[in-house]
Amino acid sequence: MSAEPDLRIRHLSPAFRTFCGEGALDALPRELTRVGARRAVIICIPAVAAHAEAMGRVHEVLGERLVGQFDGVEEHSPLPSVERARAFLADHEADAVIAVGGGSSVVTARAATILLGEDRDVRQLCTRRESGRLVSPKLSAPKLPQWVVPSSPTTAYAKAGAAVLDPETGERLALYDPKSRAQGVVLDAGMALTAPPRLSWSAALNIFSMAVEGLQSRRVDPLADALLTHALRTVVTWLPQVLKDPDQAAPRLQLMLAAIMSGQGSDHSGGGLAQALSHAIGPRSSAPNGVVEALLLPHAMRFNANVVPDRLAAVAGYLGLADRSADGVIAEVERLLEVFEVPRRLQDIGVARESLAEVVAHAMDDWAITAGPRPPEEQDVRDLITGTW
């Protein structure tokens, strides 16, 4: 008879409000009133700003509370653009932030809010290695309240961290502050349709990968597992529909809801090896981070298989597989990734072989690498990256 699982858990659910569907945008002014905010600033990417109809509806509901729009967000949230967003918030005396767009908008808004509140150099605020350990400094200053109006699905909605790219060194500087977590998300059908279908597709691959890695955690948390499991099933059901029916909002809204579940669930399970490696590889590739993470996922699963066979068997059950062996569930994930049209090799997405050593070094300093069920040594990462290339 198997032993009973240890159910001593600590599961804290941060306050987070979700509005979805017709009339969802009408929640924004009520939310601002709730926190007493009167000077909201939008932070978005230029491509979203160019959608006059969708952005016009956001402007209309915000009314005179909207005091400015920063549309200088860049892919991977490079530090110079984050600094410009911080200055924009300060110049407009913002008391609330609305991130509109995808992951880069969300991360840039969060990072700019942290830099504004702390008023210190980013390297004094970011996670760093001290005596062989990764340490995140406590950031105590108040932060502006934020909301997200997404154009694509991303697990970043629900997170409290932000990683910005230092273009001079190639490093990802990770900032973490629970006070910078968004108050909530507003899922609007019109805004969801502004994203190119391939962008929604690539973003959803991050949801899938994060759910699968979260479900391999050594932590036993049925509440987190429930969120991750439904996120996984939602992606499997709805992701193919995004490319088949690009003019339909329903598949995109379903994936946005899955993004919330995967983001919240993985807050409790932790990240994983594929996530950490994708952070290091993404800026050195021609593919979005979601594609990179999905490409790496089966390789990370094989690396972890011997230490979490029971967790992989559970993933097989969630996917409805008769074969619950590690090989069986990894083969099914590979089949799904083929259905999702994910490339198989790093060289297929523009990663240069000479950049692999730099990737390994940066991955070892990524916070997510500490959360996997089998923390890798540097040689393990080097072997995995080389084998995937």
Results as ranks from 00 to 15, higher is better:
167 P>H: 11
205 L>E: 00
327 D>G: 15
185 V>D: 05
90 A>T: 10
334 E>D: 14
243 L>K: 09
263 G>Q: 05
225 D>L: 02
199 L>Y: 05
301 M>G: 04
273 L>V: 13
75 E>L: 14
364 M>T: 02
338 E>P: 07
320 G>L: 08
12 L>T: 09
355 S>E: 14
183 Q>C: 14
243 L>D: 04
139 L>G: 04
316 A>S: 10
373 P>K: 02
320 G>I: 05
144 L>F: 03
187 L>Y: 03
91 D>A: 15
362 H>K: 15
32 L>H: 07
238 W>M: 13
295 L>C: 09
345 R>T: 09
31 E>V: 12
39 R>E: 04
373 P>G: 10
378 E>A: 14
300 A>M: 06
110 R>I: 02
162 A>N: 07
83 E>H: 11
1 M>L: 08
170 G>K: 05
166 D>H: 11
107 V>H: 02
183 Q>F: 09
3 A>I: 07
138 K>G: 08
128 R>D: 00
21 G>T: 12
88 F>M: 10
333 V>R: 13
260 I>S: 06
384 L>I: 14
220 V>Q: 13
212 V>I: 14
139 L>F: 01
265 G>L: 03
168 E>R: 15
216 Q>T: 15
338 E>T: 15
13 S>L: 15
29 P>D: 11
384 L>P: 10
63 G>N: 06
2 S>G: 01
313 A>V: 01
17 R>I: 11
2 S>R: 15
76 H>W: 10
20 C>W: 12
179 K>C: 02
333 V>D: 10
242 V>E: 02
176 Y>T: 11
351 V>A: 12
147 W>A: 02
155 T>N: 09
216 Q>F: 06
263 G>I: 03
13 S>I: 14
268 H>Q: 13
209 S>C: 05
263 G>T: 04
235 V>L: 10
171 E>W: 08
268 H>E: 03
159 K>T: 14
174 A>H: 12
67 V>L: 04
119 D>A: 15
277 L>I: 09
269 S>F: 02
280 A>R: 07
389 W>D: 10
213 E>M: 10
384 L>H: 09
48 V>K: 00
371 A>R: 13
22 E>Y: 10
149 V>Y: 01
50 A>K: 14
305 A>Q: 11
145 P>A: 02
50 A>M: 04
85 A>V: 06
54 A>M: 01
102 G>K: 11
202 S>E: 05
298 P>C: 08
156 A>I: 07
60 E>F: 04
234 T>H: 07
199 L>E: 09
39 R>K: 12
166 D>N: 14
31 E>F: 10
13 S>E: 14
149 V>S: 03
246 P>I: 01
227 L>G: 00
379 Q>D: 12
190 G>H: 07
141 A>N: 05
322 A>E: 15
265 G>V: 00
278 S>W: 02
31 E>W: 15
53 E>H: 06
362 H>D: 09
41 V>M: 03
360 V>N: 06
380 D>N: 11
223 L>H: 11
200 S>F: 06
89 L>H: 06
63 G>I: 09
74 E>C: 08
210 M>I: 06
372 G>Y: 04
353 R>A: 13
56 G>W: 00
299 H>W: 11
